[in-house]
Design a protein around this nucleic acid. Structure first.
Lengths: 213, 213
DNA sequence: TTGCAAATGTGAGGATTACTCATGTTTTGA
DNA sequence: TCAAAACATGAGTAATCCTCACATTTGCAA
């Protein structure tokens, strides 16, 4: 519960929370830290976020910050996990009781919209994601998540198209999922109108690929 | 030619080369700097690249490094520009004399393969790209590049499908292009066999969208 | 050739910043 | 009631980017 992370500057291993708050007081303080970090990331991005500033905004000392987070990235990662969990829940909920192709189409469409809205509302998510791109270990982790999400798609598709080649189905689902993430990230980078168009175009493209015209 | 870049820690404006080498000797030294940087990025990523190490490997002093590059990111960016230029040349060459749908299919396929090979061979490219994701100004720039590349696609598509809605064509081409970049980045993140499958799947999907089944 | 201005080269040191640790305070539980 | 565990603190450490005052080399006009 108190691992020594060598944390060479530059590249560090993935570090889990150093200590989880067990008292009411400290739980509240950790919440304040996360809220402060979230606000700062939304304002300027996690790269420009300064640990001292996070501590100041949260009304705690720098030492307290490091009591619960082994390093800067851990804070960003902790924020990310919340949204990851949230979106995973959305996925399984949306795809759970899909029966036919039409049902799949509307469920998929709704799913993409939810993702889009989530990304629009939470700048932290994109920030986290770009962080994972730069870091090999985190990228592997993110890739695993993405693969797991694609499995939901595969499960549904196997029901809808039992005759299809499983390997190809797997490849297609994984690709389509990743394209979806890319499409949403692209959509939030441009103005709203174009973003909406891009998301709709992605839906068409994905559905054509997954369940045909 | 000697702009003062305020370069606040954290986030800085895009800075162009501070001074271009005009003498033979300094040109060679700059090449050595770029080569050293490229090697270090390939080994550990640009984040872990230390300016001191670049200087040491290139056999120059730290001061010389900053004589020609205003900051760390400028080095990465300089490397990126070479590949950007190279790939732009590929695109226009590949798509220039496409006449019919069949010609487009093979040209597009070849184009994607070239991109894939380029990314496989040059770790720097991915690194640069992930850097642009984290930085707002660079992301805008990259997005502009991407849009320009998509225009090549649009131009060809307008010839092949003169009756199609221009706005929709534009949206589709932009999306397909971005998906292609995403697909290639994904492909180089997994093992070679799966990567190949993903790239092929992308080609199928893109071509179906662009010129029909 | 000579001499000077521009270009280039140098590395110790300034400025930031992530993170540590010795020390003090509060809470818990028996 | 009190000791141990949890928590809080912030000055200090180490790493790193980048600057700047000064030294050296090169191009070139006289």
């Amino acid at each position: 519960m108190d691992e020594k992370v060598t944390a060479k500057p530059g590249q560090a291993a993935i570090a889990l929370p150093r200590r989880s708050p067990s008292q009411q007081r400290s739980r509240e303080r950790v919440e304040r830290m996360l809220a402060a970090a979230s606000a700062l990331i939304a304002e300027q991005g996690s790269d420009a976020m300064r640990m001292g500033e996070v501590a100041e905004r949260a009304g705690v000392s720098i030492g307290s910050l490091y009591q619960f987070f082994p390093d800067k990235r851990a804070i960003v990662w902790a924020l990310a996990e919340r949204y990851t969990a949230e979106s995973q829940a959305c996925i399984s909920a949306a795809l759970k009781d899909v029966g036919d192709a039409e049902g799949f189409k509307s469920a998929f469409s709704e799913l993409v919209d939810i993702y889009y809205q989530l990304f629009l509302a939470e700048p932290v998510i994109r920030d986290v994601w770009s962080g994972t791109q730069a870091d090999k270990a985190l990228r592997e982790l993110e890739l695993g998540d993405s693969r797991a999400n694609a499995e939901f798609l595969v499960a549904v598709l196997k029901r809808l198209r039992p005759d299809a080649d499983p390997v190809e189905l797997e490849t297609t689902a994984f690709l389509v999922w990743q394209m979806g993430e890319a499409a949403v990230r692209l959509a939030i980078s441009v103005d709203r109108e174009e973003g909406d168009r891009l998301v709709e175009a992605y839906k068409r493209m994905a559905l054509r690929e997954l369940v045909g015209g």
